[in-house]
Design a binder for these strands. Structure first.
Length: 252
DNA sequence: CACCAGGTGGAAC
DNA sequence: GTTCCACATGGT
C-alpha cells in the first residue's frame, strides 16, 4: 500500500462537485483558481502551494490508512477499493451551499445545480458566488436554477453568513459538537449536512457524516454502531472510503 | 414509467 | 423525547 493521489477516486467520490474529466484531463475551479491536470503528470499540483494544500498532499494518508485497516476487514476492502482518495481542502462557504443543495438529491444533479449557480452568477470566470452575489440573484434567476425547496435554505445560509450571525472563522476554533451546533443555526442545515461541511470544508477528520449509504454500511457491517466509536479520530476519512465502497464497489 | 436521491423542519404523538 | 411526513426536481 503506497500513499498516492488518485484524481479519479478523489474528485469523483462525492466530496467535490465542480470537477469534470474531459479527454483524460481533470478540470476544475476552486477559490478563484483554475486547474487542468492529468493523472500521469500531477506536477502542476505538487509545485503549486494552493493546489498542494487543496489536494492535501501534506497529510500522511499511508499511516492513517494502516490504522484504519487494523480496525476491520471491511475497512481493508473499502480502502483497497479506492486507496487513492484524499480529503480535499475546500472552501467552507462553498461547502455550506453545496451540501445544503445535496440534501435529498443525487450527486449528478448536485453537480449540475452547483455549476449552474456559478454559471449564472459569474458567467465569465465561473467562480463560486460570494454570499452577496447569491443574495443579489433576482427571483427569476434563482427560480431558473430549480433548487426547489432548497431555495430558502440557501438564502438563509447566505444571509446569516453575510451578517456574521454564523461566523465561519469562529467555527474553526470550536469543538466538533459546538461547530455542528453553530452550523445548524442555518435553516436547512441538519446533522448530516453540518458533518459534511466540517469534514470537507473545515478538514475535520473527526466528523462522520451519516447519509443513507453510510447508515446502510454501519448497519450491515458494524452492528449499527456509530462511526466515531468504531473509527475514532479518523472517522471522517474512514467514512469517505466506506461511502465510495458501498456505492460503487460491490457489484464490480 | 416508477423509484430514488450524500435530509430536514415541523407537526403530531 | 421519538415518529411521521411533505418537500421540488430530475437522474436512472
Amino acid at each position: 500500500m503506497n500513499d498516492f493521489l488518485d484524481l479519479d477516486q478523489t474528485l469523483d467520490c462525492g466530496q467535490a462537485f465542480r470537477w469534470t474529466k474531459v479527454d483524460g484531463i481533470w478540470q476544475g475551479i476552486a477559490s478563484g483558481q483554475k486547474l487542468s491536470v492529468k493523472q500521469d503528470n500531477i506536477e502542476p499540483i505538487k509545485e503549486n502551494p494552493f493546489w498542494s494544500h487543496y489536494f492535501d498532499l501534506d497529510t500522511d494518508y499511508l499511516t492513517i490508512k494502516n490504522k484504519l485497516i487494523r480496525i476491520s476487514p471491511i475497512m481493508e476492502l473499502a480502502i483497497n477499493f479506492s486507496p487513492g482518495i484524499r480529503i480535499l481542502n475546500q472552501d467552507p462557504w462553498e461547502m455550506v451551499i453545496s451540501f445544503i443543495l445535496s440534501q435529498y438529491n443525487n450527486i449528478s444533479r448536485i453537480k449540475s445545480m452547483v455549476n449552474n449557480l456559478c454559471q449564472i452568477t459569474n458567467p465569465t470566470t465561473l467562480n463560486f458566488p460570494t454570499p452577496n452575489q447569491l443574495l443579489a440573484l433576482n427571483p427569476e434567476k434563482l427560480n431558473s436554477l430549480k433548487f426547489g425547496f432548497r431555495d430558502k435554505y440557501v438564502l438563509d445560509g447566505a444571509r446569516k453568513i453575510n451578517e456574521g450571525r454564523v461566523d465561519l472563522e469562529y467555527i474553526k476554533t470550536l469543538s466538533i459538537e459546538e461547530a455542528e451546533k453553530e452550523l445548524e443555526k442555518i435553516v436547512g442545515v441538519g446533522k448530516k449536512v453540518a458533518a459534511c461541511i466540517l469534514l470537507f470544508g473545515f478538514h475535520r477528520f473527526d466528523s462522520f457524516p451519516v447519509d443513507i449509504w453510510i447508515k446502510r454500511a454501519m448497519d450491515k457491517w458494524f452492528d449499527g454502531q456509530t462511526g466515531e466509536k468504531v473509527f475514532g479520530p479518523y472517522a471522517g476519512i474512514a467514512q469517505q472510503y466506506l461511502f465510495n465502497f458501498i456505492r460503487n464497489g460491490l457489484n464490480t
